[in-house]
Design a protein around this nucleic acid. Structure first.
Lengths: 230, 230
DNA sequence: AAAACGGTTTAATGCCATTTTAATGGAGCA
DNA sequence: TGCTCCATTAAAATGGCATTAAACCGTTTT
């Protein structure tokens, strides 16, 4: 995945430098401006994912800059920084298009956490970074294609893996054979095949047989559900 | 457009009531629970767009509840409330899947603004949450295909489920046997079968027999109606 | 090129829950 | 009383599902 680019606009050099360093260590790509005008210039000439704006800035204040950014791009996330902690300020900040608001002095960890929360939401990549799906004690690593339960690794074939992944992504949801056929196989219409039944049977043998609890339940006439311990 | 539904879980009754009132005035639809367990129950049986959770709750704390919500649904927005203002708390909150974090005492305007910012950012569509139908104390989850009444789950077969779904979708409306035949079975015309009568009987046994009130009423010569206690 | 192999799919069997049919009796009404 | 309409029960038919074995297919090995 490409780097996340951050525009930081903060006139207190010391704070700016601390943030730049900290964010860079977290593998974000950071550009810094020390006043609103410079910030605007950077924004106009570079693609950013997120902007961190102090409110009290020389030349052009944080609200104006936030509005400018919003008017050009709805996607970019904006976090405002301020020394004040008044509700009016926050409201104005949000109305200028900010996504979050942090009051100085703040903890760097908190800033990080808020950045991550926002980015995670925006790219709607649940569990960004870790490509892992879980249901109870069953763990599926989408990168290494490894599946484990109770610590023991379970070797699965490609189709078995795809089917299990589909089940996990739809956990607690009853999926019909047609759903499965369309999403795991590329069958549109083939009423007479029973591959799915056979594969569910394969899966059950591998992920349930030697373990304490069931995972895949049959809903007669409806389909199958994967769910942990009723 | 459908209302935005909010689940509020807060044990301090006074705060809960103030919030409920304020949010309702803003045209949000609000359900309130006073402990984590009750909150979980509401969540499991209703479709919400946003949850506001206090952290210190009896029975099940806010973090646990947030995790529960996340594990079922990535779409629902979660805002945490707390009296503490430590970074560790916030980090734990965000890791539990919260989207925002508000420290008490807070200004109601600020809460509103944050709610709006979150909803806007996600261009969230109200009702995108779980697929649930309800009539009185009868709840039908279309995803998990689970039906409960007074909290007790009632196992239904595929046909029973379809029939009940049809009744619920047409609640307070008298549906003729022909309507049912066409929509639940795929029969056009078969005057001599009495499957429908038999299945209505099955349903009544399961969803009425051990409960306090009737749900399905017979309209002689016309059909059946599902309606809650008049 | 043939054989061996792992993975996938088809086919066949039997069980049993679900669905449907059929029969009976009661309530309401002319 | 006889008729229609519905509720209820039991019994019969159906079809869905689990399971096993064997066929198929592409890849690798010899």
């Amino acid at each position: 995945m490409a780097e996340t680019k951050i525009l930081l606009v903060e006139d207190e050099k010391k704070i700016a430098e601390t943030l730049r360093k900290g964010l860079t260590e977290q593998h974000y790509e950071v550009d810094v401006a020390y006043d609103g005008g410079a910030g605007k210039k950077l924004f106009d000439t570079n693609p950013y994912d997120l902007a961190i704006l102090d409110i009290n800035l020389p030349v052009m204040n944080g609200y104006e800059l936030a509005r400018h950014i919003r008017s050009y791009n709805e996607e970019i996330l904006v976090i405002m920084l301020t020394a004040m902690n008044t509700t009016e300020d926050k409201i104005e900040g949000f109305e200028a298009g900010a996504d979050d608001y942090i009051v100085k002095p703040f903890d760097f960890q908190e800033l990080l956490v808020r950045i991550r929360a926002l980015l995670k939401r925006l790219h709607h990549q649940p569990g960004a970074g870790t490509n892992i799906l879980k249901v109870g004690d069953l763990i599926m690593n989408l990168d290494s294609k490894e599946v484990t339960r109770e610590g023991r690794t379970i070797p699965l074939t490609a189709k078995e893996f795809q089917l299990l992944e589909y089940f996990i992504r739809n956990k607690n949801k009853v999926v019909s054979r047609i759903d499965i056929a369309m999403n795991v196989w590329d069958i549109d219409f083939d009423t007479k095949t029973n591959v799915i039944d056979v594969y569910v049977n394969f899966l059950r043998k591998k992920i349930e047989k030697d373990f304490s609890s069931k995972l895949i339940y049959t809903q007669v006439g409806m389909g199958y559900v994967l769910k942990e311990n009723v």
